[in-house]
């Protein structure tokens, strides 16, 4: 549990640093921060083994760091440097840490869900005991391809997990403006993909639910669906908490701030937040200094890598 707590803290502090750089203008690419949602990434990644893969979307700093992606490469990427995890080509919305099981994140809503299923199919065809995880938001369930993929995953008994991070919002819209019933945990049921609702701000609950789902996938029993209930503290994009959503969200935010996944886990562990923060911050400072001093891409090489050679 200590490891999971440290992962959450690392995500939190790293994203706070990125948020500050968004505000000062040092970071120019759009950044979607997962501050407040760290337990989902930390809990799920802790249940995985090397070789398993995680597929993310626009809000994936947490997935990247929870998998063990390098802090320096993350900072360099959002700063548009050659040493970034995508060579500065992608920015915050296109992260990659293949060695750590993160093949690539993309900001097309629901875009990587079928891709995760495809990876799971590849593992299955080759007889490998690997598992693929698709992370996506509550908004992604509004795209048809998710439902097609749920059926395909069940039909082919794919070793995968659908992890819905339900933070109640899609951009500026509350779930009640987009849906009649609060029942996302049942999204897979019709397609014979078992689902569970999990407290997404309780890292141990997420870990336990993910452990079971991973076990099921690895044993060949097929996919599972987890709805992790959580809340993002910041705005949809950028560092501010309410720039895009207005008054309606504020009351809710105050409640969720009381329900901090990191604070709650710290209390359980009897941890001293300040000491650990200092350690993490040192690591962040070092990574940031290195990232800042890296070179920017050479504009003359703009045409490189359109196709693989």
């Amino acid at each position: 549990m200590l490891g999971r707590w440290k992962t959450m803290l690392r995500i939190r502090r790293a994203e706070e640093a990125i948020g500050e750089m968004c505000e000062t203008g040092e970071v120019r690419c759009p950044c979607h921060l997962s501050i407040g949602q760290e337990a989902v990434a930390a809990g799920v990644s802790a249940a995985l083994l090397p070789g398993d893969t995680v597929w993310g979307a626009h809000r994936s700093h947490g997935h990247y760091l929870a998998q063990g992606g390098s802090l320096e490469s993350l900072f360099a990427e959002v700063l548009g440097k050659t040493t970034g995890c995508s060579g500065g080509r992608g920015g915050s919305m296109h992260l990659r840490a293949p060695e750590q099981g993160l093949p690539g994140t993309v900001p097309i809503v629901a875009g990587t869900i079928p891709l995760a299923a495809g990876a799971a199919l590849a593992y299955k065809l080759r007889g490998e005991k690997r598992v693929a995880v698709a992370f996506f938001g509550d908004g992604a369930l509004e795209e048809g391809s998710v439902h097609e993929t749920l059926n395909l995953a069940a039909l082919y008994k794919l070793p995968m997990i659908f992890v819905c991070e339900n933070n109640l919002y899609s951009s500026h819209l509350h779930w009640t403006e987009r849906r009649v019933a609060d029942n996302l945990d049942q999204a897979g049921a019709f397609h014979s993909v078992p689902g569970a609702r999990v407290d997404g701000n309780a890292v141990e609950d997420v870990f336990e639910a993910a452990r079971q789902a991973v076990g099921r996938a690895r044993s060949g029993a097929g996919p599972s669906f987890l709805e992790c209930r959580t809340f993002r503290w910041r705005g949809h994009v950028g560092a501010s908490s309410d720039q895009d959503v207005g008054v309606h969200r504020r009351g809710e935010l105050a409640e969720w701030l009381e329900y901090d996944p990191i604070q709650r886990a710290a209390e359980k562990l009897n941890m001293d937040l300040a000491t650990h923060c200092a350690d993490v911050d040192q690591e962040i400072d070092r990574a940031l200094t290195n990232a800042r001093s890296a070179s920017t891409p050479d504009a003359g090489r703009i045409g490189e890598h359109v196709c693989a050679s």
Binding site: H94, T296, V306
Partner: peptide
Amino acid sequence: PAPSSHAE
């Protein structure tokens, strides 16, 4: 495709 980094 469109690159992200400012320089490119």
